[in-house]
């Protein structure tokens, strides 16, 4: 009974949370705007979105993983690996078309994600351990394939760098790619059978099995998607920063998980919305990008992020408790 009651509150809270997040973003924006009027200029917004694109793309994959009650710690290592693979190919075979190289990076990422999925579904290893193991393997492999060397700016072709820095219709490619990923994700989650079955799997794995859903396949799929997006963003990361190192994107997985949590994705599975993580990533991006604008040392960035996440999850718990209390009071007893 109590469990059901809790779920009930979650649902009422869902709508709240996104509104709250939006409100918070608006308040922060206004405050920053007052202190520095250059914040809400086209150029700065373009910058901000560009910087948030990779994080927001990864959040989509992480949300699906979290929805199935999992977690993926290997994504940053996967990005480094796929990105490094692509970078080496660019360095050694500059004549190959950048898009083809990107596809190679994506395939490498997908394969790693697929292995994660296999270990978790068929091998019955806890997600946190399986992906931690993969993180090590991928980081080491990145070093192995690069022989410990960097791929530097001059070794990249312009065509490759353009994938992340170029523009189409006056908008940066990264932003366009992110928009495309979100559109696809929205369609996939809300309008395909598989998308809904992923949510069913996370909402109640046991019933999902009884309803004839192949939950193992859902888990493998989710981690493969996560891997695919890691591969994609890994290539974009290298193209954007025009430098590939074996410790690229170190620790980035935590940022992605944090953005999802800010966006209201529950770590206990079953719930999470595309709109939520978009706002979550955006808030994360704003926190990262506006500090210099308001003359706060960038060294405050981490602490502020940590504090905001902590406060957000605690506020969420308190709101839920308040709502449970009100519901109980309403029950005529």
């Amino acid at each position: 009974m109590e469990k059901l009651l809790k779920k009930k509150n979650n649902i009422q809270l869902d709508q709240f949370r996104e509104l709250g997040l939006l409100l918070f973003i608006i308040i922060i924006s206004i405050m920053v705007q007052i202190r520095n009027p250059s914040f809400l200029t086209g150029e700065n917004i373009n910058d901000l979105l560009k910087n948030t694109a990779i994080l927001s793309i990864l959040s989509v994959g992480m949300m699906l993983v979290l929805v199935t009650r999992g977690i993926d710690l290997s994504i940053a290592a996967n990005m480094a690996f796929s990105g490094m693979l692509a970078s080496i190919i660019v360095r050694d075979f500059p004549q190959i078309h950048p898009v083809l190289i990107m596809l190679i990076g994506i395939s490498a990422g997908t394969l790693s994600g697929f292995i994660n999925g296999l270990l978790i579904s068929k091998g019955k290893i806890l997600p946190i351990i399986a992906t931690l193991g993969m993180m090590y393997v991928l980081r080491g492999s990145t070093f192995l394939i690069s022989k410990g060397q960097w791929v530097s700016a001059y070794q990249f072709t312009d065509g490759f760098k353009k994938m992340a820095t170029g523009t189409n219709w006056g908008i940066n490619n990264l932003i366009l790619i992110a928009v495309a990923v979100y559109a696809l994700a929205y369609y996939f989650i809300n309008h395909t059978r598989t998308g809904r079955r992923i949510y069913a799997t996370g909402s109640n794995p046991d019933s999902a099995k009884i309803s004839g859903i192949n939950t193992d396949r859902m888990v493998i799929l989710v981690y493969s998607i996560m891997g695919m997006l890691s591969g994609l963003t890994g290539v974009l990361w290298m193209a954007r920063f025009a430098s590939a190192q074996s410790d690229s994107a170190m620790g980035y997985e935590m940022n992605v998980i944090a953005a999802c949590v800010l966006g209201g994705v529950s770590m206990s599975g079953g719930s999470g919305k595309v709109g939520g993580i978009l706002l979550g990533s955006l808030l994360f991006g704003i926190l990262n990008n506006t500090l210099p604008l308001i003359n706060v040392s960038p060294f405050w960035q981490n602490a502020i992020q940590g504090a905001v996440i902590l406060l957000a999850v605690i506020a969420n718990v308190l709101a839920k408790r308040g709502m449970t209390k009100r519901n109980l009071n309403r029950r005529d007893r």
């Binding site: 779920k7 979650n10 109640n204 019933s207 999902a208 309803s211």
Partner: peptide
Amino acid sequence: AIYQHVTCYPDL
């Protein structure tokens, strides 16, 4: 079958 413990998906 309708099971003893309701086997629904509360999030859907």
